[in-house]
């Protein structure tokens, strides 16, 4: 479930921040869905709000906080660089892998 960090680095190098955000966002979402499915195998993703609430209800505080921060950065209007920095941090916290 790791992302292709080379792809990501290339996108970063070319300053394609929207693409980097897109890649990381997709991956974090997938990882959170897998975490929820460990406790609720029938869980089907429907939207970010629902995913965040499921994480709060089922997962430990660290993962819930990641889900909340992920939700917040997704719904608020942020500059791409700020959003990217948050997503990198969340991805690293989720996977324990440094980008």
């Amino acid at each position: 479930m790791e992302i292709n960090s080379l792809d990501l680095k290339n996108e970063l190098k070319n300053k394609n921040y929207d693409n980097c955000i897109f890649i990381l966002h997709k991956k974090i979402k997938e990882l959170l869905i897998l975490e929820v499915q460990k406790y609720d195998k029938d869980f089907k993703y429907s939207n970010l709000n629902d995913l965040k609430n499921k994480c709060i209800g089922l997962l430990n505080e660290d993962l819930s906080n990641i889900a909340i921060d992920f939700y917040m950065v997704s719904i608020t209007d942020e500059s791409p660089l700020y959003e990217l920095s948050i997503l990198v941090e969340l991805y690293e916290n989720l996977t324990k892998i440094k980008i």
Partner: peptide, 13 residues
Amino acid sequence: FYPVSRFYQVNFS
């Protein structure tokens, strides 16, 4: 914003 947003989201869920 950071502690309060987490606090609110947990309670509103």
